[in-house]
Structures are given as C-alpha cells and as structure tokens.
C-alpha cells in the first residue's frame, strides 16, 4: 500500500547578496541626503561641484529637518 504525503518546507533565510545590496543602498542614500558636499558630482564636474553644491542645495531642507548637520 502506498500513501502520498505532502510536506511544506518554509524557507525563511535572507540571501546574503540581498543584505549586501540593501546595505549598499542604505549607505549611498544616507550619504547623498545627509553628507554630500559636492563629492558625488565632483567625479564629473571636478572642483566646480564643491562650489555649486547642487546635491547639497537639493537636499538642504530635508537635511535640516531630518537632523543632519548641514552647514
């Protein structure tokens, strides 16, 4: 006599690559909004980026309101 049984296996592990990717996104976003003073755009614009501060100005109000030191 044969009997069929169903077994449900629940996998709850979090893939390590997902954790690394999400952690990288966290660090990058935090840097953009909280800390960039022209660093990212300087890769393309050079020293001008530190004077124009496009990202700094874009995130200025959120930076203050979220508690980051701004200037």
């Amino acid at each position: 006599m044969s009997q069929s049984r169903g077994i449900t296996i629940t996998k709850t592990g979090v893939p390590i690559y997902a954790i690394i990717l999400l952690a990288a996104i966290f660090v990058f976003g935090l840097f953009v909004v909280g800390y960039d003073q022209g660093h990212l755009f300087s890769v393309i614009m050079g020293e001008t980026a530190f004077e124009e501060l496009y990202l700094h100005e874009l995130t200025h109000d959120m930076r203050h309101a979220a508690g980051f030191p701004c200037h």
């Binding site: 999400l22 952690a23 966290f26 874009l58 995130t59 979220a66």
Partner: peptide, 22 residues
C-alpha cells in the same frame, strides 16, 4: 530647495527603508 525636499525625502526614505527591510 523646497521642491528638492520631497525628492530628498524619497531618497532618504528608500535608503532607510532598505535598512528597515534588512
């Protein structure tokens, strides 16, 4: 700056959301 605040909120939110998700 005012318009950027909403975009900055979305960027910061996405990044904190990534940490929160982990």
């Amino acid at each position: 700056q005012k318009g950027g605040q909403v975009l900055a909120g979305a960027i910061l939110g996405t990044s904190i959301g990534a940490l929160f998700g982990i």
